[in-house]
Design a protein around this nucleic acid. Sequence first.
DNA 1: GCTACAATAT
DNA 2: AATATTGTAG
Length: 431
Amino acid sequence: MSVSANLLDENSRDLRKEVPCDDEIGSPINDDDEEFPTTSIRVLLVDADSNSLLPMKNLMIQYSYQVTKYEDGEEAMAFLMKNKQEIDLVIWDFHMPDINGLDALNTIGKEMDLPVVIMSHDHKKETVMESIKYGACDFLVKPVSKEVIAVLWRHVYRKRMSKSGLDKPGESGTVESDPDEYDDLGQDNLYQSNEEGSKNSSDQKGEKPATKKPRMQWTTELHHKFEVAVEKLGSLEKAFPKTILKYMQEEMNVQGLTRNNVASHLQKYRQNSKQKTRTHQEPQEDFFWRNAGPDATLAASNPPLSSNLNIHATASYLMNNQAAPRASYFMNNQAASPIPYPSNSCLPMNNNNYFMTKPFTYIDQFQQQQQQYHSSLNLPSMLTKQEPRHVPLSAMENFDTPMIYNSSFHFDHDEYFPPEGFNNFDQIGQN
DNA sequence: GCTACAATAT
DNA sequence: AATATTGTAG
């Protein structure tokens, strides 16, 4: 059966074009970026026969479904009653000793709104018809093939779509509602479901987002596999989506993922770990000026490393407060200090919109000149810029002592020195 | 309205 | 393939 070919919705046409004759189901899941969004599907699988239950469960897990299995019908039903919110799809064996498929359909149909799939080792017409009559949304013949499993998510998706109320004509009342959905009950193609079957009519005009895929979800287990794969491939930096995916598929028997899924997850994962290591090193949230190092002459009054020292503010501060009467500059080996600022003017800013305020002296590097200069002042500390970030103004208020700051970033003279009008420079390095 | 995070676009 | 942007659940 060329089941899979028909299942790939819109793209199926293209697929056929490019791969004209494939009756074979080579690989139902080619990671082509074709999506089988099973990862978010939580399945309750009930089968008294463990010989078929376990393989089926494993197969489903390979396709990234989240599977809860039961061999006992009563237990399964009890579980379902309690956890109906946590299940998206029920698969129930027709021939259960305690609660058979029809009973299950009855109960579930009454108590909750879940798609129920019946499976059976036989496919007698009667069995199939009864199941459908009782509301089964699909009928699977055991052993269930992977091709079938790969597309079971569609039942869930239908449910979600109709619930979200895109178009629910008359959800109530009559049983014969969805003619297009389940009418063709010739058992073995039940799972083929619509799509191409839309030959029916309506409008090919377009809007037929009938198959919006559910969002996938990285479960803990899946993520763990992901991490293992990453580790096996070296490091976070060395692991790439394609190889990760390949590893997960081949070595860990994970299917149903696409490269994009992995790429997206990897991107987020890298971000997170980067963030983590950063905050680990810098537990003191956002300060970026810190003590630059030992300075015997100043040691006594050095503030602790962890203190929040801020010497810049945002543009809004500048506009709303006419602060910063003076600033002293000493950058890129060019010293300028002190500089009187008119109270209503702008301070020079750097690329990160920082400016100096209060009578600070700014030092770019540990140049001899500068060191001489700053040690000649009786300044409390020497600071290093850590990283560009915004810092609350409040911390700045506490400092009225001039300080020397050592910048670790590049300053452009024209950009950071006061504009034309502010020519009150004193060459202080060598006076 | 935000945040987290997957999907999609570039 | 990597990264940036968008979309969206919760």
